[in-house]
């Protein structure tokens, strides 16, 4: 058997071993993803919206103080479980409760423009530790809407999943992302 043939056979053996181990791993411990998570929320409930859901008044900064008495009301009723549309996002921004907005894009993109009041928290921040921004600036008592670039980006879902793992149960994803926001002609903060 020549060297190349032996190398190919060895490579195939390693590949089969990886296939077996990886498949077992996937069955024993599936990847915990936003898409594979079951919805953690009960059935949709009415959202308290100021002025009947008109134009947004002011984006609340992520550091807004928490009022426990009002924060107990489920403020978000996503029409499709944990996702919010642009219209719903704007309703929440205009609503009586402070809304925490998280931008999951990379810092360079964030610096070029963002939804007003958003906190920059890309997925990489979560590697190996809990980001300071999470510990110091986000409240578990208030809803969080996470967005990324829109389209095919998964960063918002990855961040939302990490936040939910950390006990931020009222975490939602604005799926159209920053692209959807700007295409709708909404204001951008720079």
């Amino acid at each position: 058997m020549n060297t190349v043939t032996r190398a190919i056979l060895q490579g195939a053996t390693i590949g089969v071993l990886a296939l077996v181990v990886g498949t077992l791993h996937a069955f024993v411990r599936p990847v915990n993803t936003w898409d594979s998570q079951k919805p953690a929320l009960p059935a949709p409930v009415p959202i308290p919206v100021a002025n009947g859901g008109g134009q947004p008044t002011q984006v609340q900064p992520a550091t807004t103080a928490v009022t426990p008495a009002t924060a107990t009301t489920p403020p978000v009723a996503p029409h499709d479980e944990r996702m919010v549309t642009l219209a719903r996002f704007k309703e929440l921004l205009a609503g009586p409760l402070p809304l925490q907005v998280v931008d999951a894009r990379e810092p360079a993109e964030f610096a070029q423009g963002r939804i007003g009041g958003a906190l920059n928290l890309p997925p990489g921040e979560f590697y190996g530790k809990i980001p300071d921004a999470v510990l110091q600036r986000l409240s578990r008592d208030l809803p969080i809407v996470v967005y990324c670039g829109g389209g095919n980006c998964d960063a918002s879902k990855m961040v939302a999943m990490r936040l939910k793992d950390l006990g931020f149960s009222q975490t939602y994803v604005y799926d159209d992302g920053f692209t959807g926001w700007t295409q709708a002609g909404e204001a951008v903060e720079k």
């Binding site: 390693i14 071993l17 990886g22």
Partner: peptide, 19 residues
């Protein structure tokens, strides 16, 4: 499909780690 994505998400890293 979702199951295949799950398996690939585990197999690829194992193949990389082993090799």
């Amino acid at each position: 499909s979702e199951p295949l994505l799950q398996v690939l998400a585990r197999v690829v890293p194992w193949a990389e780690l082993l090799s």
